[in-house]
Amino acid sequence: MKIFIIDDDEVSIFFARHLLLLENAAPDITTFLCAEEALQTLQASAVPDLPDAIFLDLNMPIMDGWEFLEALAPIAQKITQNCRIFILTSSLDYSDILKIKDYPLVSGFIHKPIKQEDIQMVISPQM
């Protein structure tokens, strides 16, 4: 299983990565501190190289999670073939949860800190 983590918070990445490792969910984890870098990687990737799942933080400088999703829209078809995107945020703002309805690319909304059952849900076969 191949997973991307996009988050400007290194502590948050540290935790997610180790929990994923502990759960033996994915040996192949790539982390991005900047959403733009992740975007470029995704744009450049062929369908087989796409990750199976992306954990996306919302509150980031330069390009936040929402902007990332919008930037991804042109290649949405390619992405959906082999990739699911999960919002991973510390936000408790209910408006953020409501907002994911506008983004069909988003497969789920996870509150930080990520929990084991969240990881199980991600690695389980298609919901």
Binding site: D9, F15, N59, S90, L92, D93, D96, K112, P113
Partner: peptide, 26 residues
């Protein structure tokens, strides 16, 4: 203020929670 609480105050709390959990697992 809600925004601050939900994002900026919540972020370190979430991290702390995560770390605390990790400590029990490692």
């Amino acid at each position: 203020f809600t925004y601050i609480v939900s994002h900026n105050l919540r972020a370190p709390v979430a991290n702390a929670l995560g770390m605390a959990q990790l400590l029990t697992l490692t």
